[in-house]
Computed example of a mutant assay.
Amino acid sequence: MFELTSVNFDNHIPHWHTQLEAIGYNVLSIVQEGKVRYDINGEEAIGEKNDVLFIPMSTRRSGGNWMGTTHQKYTILFTYDPSLKTGIPFLDQRKFAKFRMKEARHIFSRCDKLLEEMRGGKSYRSIICLGIFQELLGMLARESDKPGELTPSKLKYAETIKKHLLAHYREPVEVGHLATLVGRSPNYVTTLFKEVCGHSPIRYMHQLRILEACSLLLSSTMTVADISQYLGYYDTSYFCRIFKQLAGMSPTEYAKRGNLADMPKFF
C-alpha cells in the first residue's frame, strides 16, 4: 500500500528552504526542535517542537526556516494508492493536517530507526523500512486522536485570529472582538489560540509589536516614545516593561547593542 521515497533528518541547516511547487508525493514533517515555516496552497503553516504536519500529494508547497532560525525535523516522503482507505484519518482525508504529539520520545526513536534502515544496505531493508513506517503511522494516528488534538476547525479558528492580529496589531485588541470573528466565547478563543500557537492572543499581539519595535530601534530615527505611541502603547513606561519582558533588555539597551538577526530568538 505504501511506498517510501526518502527519509531525511534536517539538523539545524542554515538557510534551509524548498521551492514552491506542486509536490508529487506525500510529506510527513515531524519537528523535534525549533520552528519551520511552510506555505501550503497560499496559507502559512508553522511547525514547532513536537508538531506533526501532513502535506498531501499535489499540494502547492514551499518551506523555509522560520524568521531566520534553524530547526531539527524528520521529513518522510511517501506515496500510496489514493483509491484505498488506509484507516489513518489524516491520510484518508487527503488534506493538510497538523497536530501536536503528547508522547514524542518513542516516535522520534522510531524515526531514528527508519532513517538508519533507509540509509543502510542490509538485507530485507525495504521490508523492514515498510514495517517501521506503518508502525510509525499507527503511532501518529493514535497521537492525533488524543484529546486536545489540533482539529481542522481549531486550526481554522486560530489562523483567522492570527491573520486579524497580523493586520491590526497596532490597534487596541480585545479578546471579545476576536471571539466574534470565529463565533465562539472569549474563554474558548484564549484556550484555543494557546493550544495551537503556544501563547495567548494578547501575548502574540505584544510579540508582533515588539518585533517591529526592534526593527524600528535599529533602522529608524524614532525615539522610544515615538515607537511606543506608533505601536499602540500610549504609556511609554508600560511599553518599556513589555519590551524588557520579551526581549530581555530595555529598548535603549537594544538600540545600542541589538541585532536584527537576534530578534526571533527573543520569542
Rank of each mutant, 00 (worst) to 15 (best):
M1V: 01
F2K: 06
N8T: 15
F9A: 02
D10K: 08
N11C: 14
H12T: 03
T18E: 06
L20E: 13
L20I: 08
A22E: 14
I23G: 09
N26A: 11
V27D: 08
S29P: 07
V31N: 00
Q32A: 01
V36S: 06
I40M: 14
N41F: 09
G42E: 00
E43R: 15
E43T: 15
A45D: 05
G47D: 04
K49I: 01
K49G: 09
N50L: 03
N50Q: 10
F54C: 12
T59C: 01
R60W: 07
S62R: 00
S62K: 05
N65E: 04
W66N: 04
M67Q: 13
M67F: 10
M67G: 11
T70R: 08
Y74L: 01
F78E: 00
P82R: 09
S83K: 10
K85N: 14
T86K: 06
T86G: 10
T86I: 01
D92E: 11
Q93G: 04
K95A: 13
K95M: 13
K95E: 13
F96N: 05
A97K: 11
R100E: 09
F108V: 03
C111N: 08
D112W: 02
L115F: 11
R119Y: 07
R119Q: 04
G120T: 01
S123V: 09
Y124M: 14
Y124W: 15
C129H: 11
G131M: 11
Q134S: 05
E135Q: 12
L136C: 07
M139W: 11
A141L: 12
S144Y: 04
T151S: 14
P152A: 02
L155C: 12
Y157M: 08
K162V: 03
K162E: 06
L165R: 13
L165M: 15
A167T: 03
R170K: 10
R170H: 09
R170F: 03
R170Q: 01
P172L: 11
V173D: 06
E174H: 06
G176Y: 05
H177Q: 09
T180M: 14
L181C: 09
V182G: 06
P186F: 13
N187R: 09
Y188F: 15
T190E: 05
T191N: 01
R203P: 07
M205S: 06
Q207K: 01
L208M: 12
R209Q: 01
I210H: 01
L211W: 04
E212M: 10
L216W: 01
M222Q: 03
T223M: 13
A225N: 15
I227F: 05
G232L: 02
Y234Q: 03
Y234V: 07
D235Y: 08
S237L: 15
F239V: 06
F243L: 06
S250P: 02
P251G: 02
T252H: 13
A255H: 08
A255E: 02
K256V: 08
K256T: 13
D262M: 10
P264F: 00
P264I: 07
